[in-house]
Computed example of a mutant assay.
Amino acid sequence: MQIAIVSDIHGNLPAWEAILADIRSRNIGQVYCLGDLVDFAPWDREVIASVRKLGIPCILGNHDERVGRNLPVIPKTKHSAREQAAREDAINYTKNVLDEQEKAYLAELPFSLTLTYKFPTKTWRILLVHAHPNSNERYIFADEPLDNLREIFQEQACDVLCVGHTHYSYIRPVDGNWVINPGSVGRSKEYNRLASYAILDISETAIRSEIIQVPFDRQAVIHGIEQSPIPNFYAEFWKQ
C-alpha cells in the first residue's frame, strides 16, 4: 500500500491544491499531515476547510498551537528585526481571521500519531510528529547526530519517524530504520521552492520512500499575499 505524508502547508492554497492533484493522479488513498496548516499566506481558512473535508488526519504544528491556543509570539534570535515584525503581524492576522471553531480545531489536534501496519510476518510502526517527539520547538535536520536519532528510535520503538518543521525534505537511514522529512507544501526553503511531500510504499518486506516535488502558481501566491494584510515580506520570499 502507499501513503502520502504532507507537512507545513502554511495557508498556501495554490501549493496545497497542486499537491492534492498529484496525490490523486497516483491513486493514493491515505494522506497524513504533520501540521502547520496556517500562517504566512492568506488562505488559512480554505486550507483548514480542505483538510477537514477530506478527512485527512493531522497533528499539531507549532503554528497551529500558537494560533489555536492563542499563545504569544516569542522572538527568535535567528530572525532579523524586519522578519520578526513581519512574523508577528502575519501570525496575528491568522488569529484575527479564523473563527472560534477553526481555532478549536487547531488547538485540539494531537501532538503525535502512530500508524501500525500489520502483515502476516511483519508489523511496521510509523511515528508522525511535527518537529521532534519531545517538542514542537526542536528541529531534526538531515545532519542530526546519529546517536541522537538512535536514542529517539530506542525510546519510541518505531521503524519510521516522519518529521516536518524544517521545510527541507530528506530521507535518512538509521540502522535499518528511517527518518523522513517530506519538506514543506507551502513554504519550502529548498533552492527550487517547489511544493514537497513524501510517499511511503509499505509492504511486508520493506518500506520504501520517495520525495515528490510539484510546481504550483507562485504568482498567485505573491498576488494573494500582496492583496492581503499579510506583510509583503512573505511575498518577497516567493520572488527569490
Rank of each mutant, 00 (worst) to 15 (best):
G61P: 12
G61L: 07
N62M: 10
N62T: 03
N62V: 02
D64E: 09
E65M: 02
R66E: 01
R66Q: 06
R66N: 01
G68H: 03
G68N: 05
R69E: 07
R69P: 04
N70L: 15
N70E: 14
N70V: 04
P72H: 11
P72Q: 12
P72D: 12
P72S: 05
V73K: 07
T77Y: 10
T77K: 15
T77P: 11
T77E: 15
K78G: 02
K78H: 13
H79Q: 12
S80L: 10
S80Y: 08
A81V: 15
A81R: 13
A81Y: 10
R82W: 06
E83D: 10
E83I: 03
Q84F: 09
A86T: 06
R87P: 05
R87I: 08
R87H: 14
A90C: 11
I91G: 00
N92M: 14
N96H: 12
V97N: 08
L98H: 02
E100Y: 07
E100R: 14
E100M: 08
K103C: 01
K103A: 01
A104G: 05
Y105G: 03
Y105W: 15
L106P: 07
A107W: 06
E108S: 13
E108C: 08
E108Y: 07
E108V: 00
L109Q: 01
L109H: 02
P110R: 07
P110A: 04
F111M: 12
F111V: 07
S112V: 08
S112L: 12
L113A: 01
L113T: 02
T114P: 07
T114C: 11
L115M: 11
L115G: 02
Y117H: 14
F119P: 08
F119E: 08
F119I: 06
T121G: 11
T123N: 09
W124H: 02
R125C: 05
L127C: 07
L127N: 06
L127T: 02
L128F: 03
L128S: 00
L128D: 04
V129F: 02
